[in-house]
Structures are given as C-alpha cells and as structure tokens.
Design a binder for these strands. Structure first.
Lengths: 193, 193
DNA sequence: AGAACGGGAGAACGAACGTTCTCCGATCTG
DNA sequence: CAGATCGGAGAACGTTCGTTCTCCCGTTCT
C-alpha cells in the first residue's frame, strides 16, 4: 500500500471523525461507528491512528489550522486595522449560518473531556491563547490598548457559545456591533490623550 | 423511613453529584462512584432518583436556582440601573475566583451531552434565555436598547468560557470594563437622540 | 416470640466501548 | 504453481457503565 493512498485514507478518516465528533460529541462516537462511516477496517484504522485519543488530537489540530486560516483570510480583507478586527466577527457570522453549526469544537471538547484528558485541555488553552495573541497584534496595529484585545476575545468567545445554544446567528451581529463600539471607544480614548 | 430523612439524603446526593459532575464531567462519574461518595446504597440511590438522567436534570435545576439567586443578590446591591447591570460582572469575578471554578455547568453539560440528550439541551437553552431576559429588564430600566442586553449577555457568556479555559479570573474584569463601555455608549446615544 | 418488612452490601446482567486477534481470501514473488 | 504477505470482516477480550436482583440482617408489629 503506497504512502500516497495512506495519506488519502487518513484524510478521509479525519474528515469523518471531525464530522461525527462535532455533531454527536467525542464520547458518543465509537471507533466502530467511525470505521463504518469511513468504509475501512478496524485493523487499518488502528494502523493509521494508534488510539482514539491520538485521533481526537489530530482532529483538533486540523480544526485549529482551519480556524487560523479562516481568521487570516477574514483579516486579509480589511483595508484598515479597525476593519481587520471587525472582519473577524463577519467571519463568525458566516460560520454560525452554516446549517451544521454546533458551537466551537474546542469549547465543546473542553466541556466534555477537559477535566479528564489534560493534553486535550492544554491544546484548547493553546488555541485560545493563540487567537487572543493574534487579536493583540491587530489591536496593536490599530493603536489600541492590550485590554481591548481581551475584551474582543471575550466577545468572540461569547458569540460562539451563545450562537451554539440559542441556535441563531444573531450573536455574531451583536458581537460585531459591540466590538465596533469597544474599538471606537478605545481608539477615541487613546487618540484623545 | 420518614420523608424528612429522605429529603436530607436527596440533598446530600445532589450535593455530591453536583460536585463530582462539575469537576469530572457527567459521563466520567458513574452511579457507583456517586453511591460511594454519598455513603448510601445503590438501591436507595435508585429509589430516590429513577435514573441517572433524572439526577443530572435535578442537578442542573438546582444550579439554575443557585445562579438566579446569585444574580438577584448581585443586582439588588446596585443603586442605579447602570450599577445593577455591572454588579452582574462583579458577581462573575467573585465566582471565577473560587478555587474549584471550572466554567459554566450549563455550557460544559451542553458540550458534553447537548447533542445526545435533547431535554438537557432544552434546559440549558431555557436557562440562558432566562438570563438574557433578565438582562433585558435591567437594560430597559436603564433606558437602553434591546440590543444592549444581547451584547451584555455575550460578554457574560464569553467571560465564563474564557475564565474556564485560561484558568484566570481576568476575564471578569475585562468583561466588566467592556460592559461599562457598552452601557455608557448606548445610554449616551439614546439620551442624545 | 415469630413473621413480615425494609434497607445495606454487592453480585449479576446486558450493553457499549477501546483494542486486539483470528480467519480467510486476494495479490504479489520466485 | 507454491508460498509468503497483506488487508478485510468481524469475533473476541477485558473493562466500564447503568440498572436490577439476591441474600441477609435488623427492626417492627401482633
């Protein structure tokens, strides 16, 4: 079996795992359900991923790269620092509108396994810290204070959770409006001083 | 066995269940661990709660009453509508500082079981809707627009999640500051018009 | 005192899960 | 063609879990 094919199958398994874990939760999806949906044998599944935990970790790593890509794509569209910051919330709005949106994978996984699987909890922590650091860069470009980045991160976090639970995408609009208010308020304060 | 004693034991079981579920997640805590920690027999446990799911639901209902009490206590301390709104975030700060803080029970449970147990998901939805409605009342008292309540709810939500993942209580401070900015900005806009 | 009852301790049961093993047919190599 | 290798299908294993059942002892009521 050539390496090329192995990689394709790996990706398909990761696709399936991501979809099932996201829609039903990690603990509700057994390795056998995964095997059935991916159309491979258990033997092959375990030779591609040594354990369920490693599979979950790779799924999260993939989601992390996806999220970073979405953020950078959104940010790249903004002509000004302010627009780049707000573009993040436009990206959230588009994401929330996807029909299979069920909240942030990282938050869900943290709630489900954070207390039991420390390395997954660390991964979630790293991801959130990285996002907040990116917001910090954008805020710095805009000339705002570091506390603004924390506030904007809280808004993004809250929007995801609220959208997931309420089942509507209104949260993104409200978060975007709040973000605009906070950014303008902070920038007015710094330029005035 | 008198009813009085039954009630006491029920409360003790609910205390234990709340603590264990909150610290380790619902699915990681078996009925036998609960029985051991509560010091009762399995027979009695099942005669007090017909199933694990009903026990989880009662734990969440209790948490909901606790949360509502905390909110009302905090709100009652504020002399002005603005202070009453911001008092909610002070309450959050005190809560985050508790050493066993592990985020919002409702969010955690939603992430863990929301996709599998619809009635628990509904309970979480109701709880969050009720909180947002309460914020709406307070915002109305302050003379602010309905959208402000949504923004403040997102901030509170985000603060809880961020505090849980980051492991610090800074989020409450940032959320409070952001809330103050949003409230002042909204009230300035309405009084000016 | 003797019988009926109730609760405690924990075994038992059926299901589900993660993981490994067995069997077997297909494919490649000499 | 003979033999070795690989992977597919799924049985098997050991564990855990939710739930129920059994056995036994102490209490209570007549």
């Amino acid at each position: 079996m050539p390496v090329q094919v192995d990689e394709e199958i790996r990706e398909r398994v990761l696709d399936v795992a991501d979809r099932l874990y996201y829609s039903r939760g990690v603990q509700s999806v057994g390795m056998d359900a995964l095997r059935a949906e991916a159309g491979i044998s258990l033997k092959r599944l375990y030779q591609l991923f040594p354990s369920k935990e490693s599979l979950v970790e790779e799924v999260l790593q993939r989601r992390r790269r996806l999220w970073n890509g979405l953020v950078e794509t959104a940010v790249a569209t903004g002509p000004t620092p302010r627009a780049r910051l707000l573009a993040v919330y436009d990206m959230l709005a588009r994401w929330f509108d996807e029909e299979d949106f069920r909240g942030c994978v990282f938050i869900n996984t943290f709630g489900e396994l954070g207390a039991v699987a420390p390395q997954l909890a660390d991964l979630v922590r790293e991801h959130k810290a990285q996002f907040q650091a990116r917001l910090g860069e954008l805020v710095a470009e805009a000339g705002g204070p570091a506390s603004l980045a924390s506030q904007l991160a809280i808004l993004a976090e809250g929007a995801q959770t609220t959208a997931a639970i309420a089942g509507t995408s209104d949260a993104a609009v409200h978060a975007r409006a709040a973000a605009a208010t906070l950014v303008d308020s902070a920038l007015a304060a710094t330029t005035a001083s």
